[in-house]
């Protein structure tokens, strides 16, 4: 999203406008997840016991590890922007790559977590899950949907960061023009913030 703010015909640069556009886009992203959080609260209210039982089966260790990974990656992303503002290209580049690798680590973790759930038979349409009470089916439905959609956002965020790394190497992002990197950072923080809500809802509240 952050590559769109340079008009082609006439050189027009408006960093404030670019950031405003990004914030507006993030607002609509929040509402996208807002619909899911609404569903979660309605179904949790209707099936309190089932949600309690299903949530106890979650792997809190992997969830906590992923929370730490994402929070740290937000820090490295913010530091990458600060380094760029100060003109330290190499440091910024390193920090961007670290952020990207944190994203990879998050997804690897997620893979092992989902594989364990699938092996335990808790996948949609499986005989084991279908035999469970409907509240638990809904819990797993929401879990796969919300965490999965968040995972898609992690992948999108990583793609954006990959582009930023390329732009930094080519010098398109530099000390005087780093609004793209800032917007990529904003998107990455969105990914982080959504996870901060998903983590307690699925792992901690039992």
């Amino acid at each position: 999203m952050s590559t769109e703010n340079q008009a082609v015909i006439h050189v027009h640069r408006d960093d404030v406008g670019a950031r405003m556009g990004m914030w507006l886009f993030l607002l609509s992203e929040f509402l996208l997840f807002g619909g899911l959080f609404l569903m979660y609260s309605v179904y949790r209210y209707n099936h309190q016991h089932d949600f309690h039982v299903a949530a106890e089966g979650m792997n809190v260790f992997l969830g906590t590890a992923n929370t730490l990974i994402l929070l740290t990656s937000s820090l490295t992303m913010a530091l990458a922007i600060a380094a760029m503002q100060k003109g330290n290209k190499i440091l910024s580049l390193t920090l961007q790559i670290i952020t990207f690798l944190f994203g990879v680590a998050f997804l690897v973790n997620k893979f092992f977590e989902w594989r364990a759930e699938f092996r335990a038979g808790n996948y949609p349409g499986s005989p084991i899950l279908t035999a469970k009470p409907s509240g638990q089916i809904l819990y797993y439905g929401l879990y796969y949907t919300m965490v999965g959609l968040h995972g898609v956002h992690v992948i999108v965020g990583m793609t954006i960061i990959a582009f930023m790394i390329r732009f930094t190497i080519k010098g398109i992002i530099n000390k005087d023009n780093y609004v793209k990197l800032e917007n990529a950072g904003l998107y990455w923080h969105l990914v982080d913030i959504i996870w901060i809500f998903l983590f307690p809802l699925f792992y901690l509240i039992t």
């Binding site: 609509s28 509402l31 996208l32 807002g34 619909g35 349409g125 089916i137 929401l142 949907t145």
Partner: peptide, 21 residues
């Protein structure tokens, strides 16, 4: 618009993967 986006996406997920929503 994001609300209908997510709602229709959920119907797609429900149809394709059989996820209970």
């Amino acid at each position: 618009t994001p609300i209908v986006g997510i709602t229709l996406l959920l119907v797609i997920i429900e149809r394709v993967f059989g996820v209970g929503l």
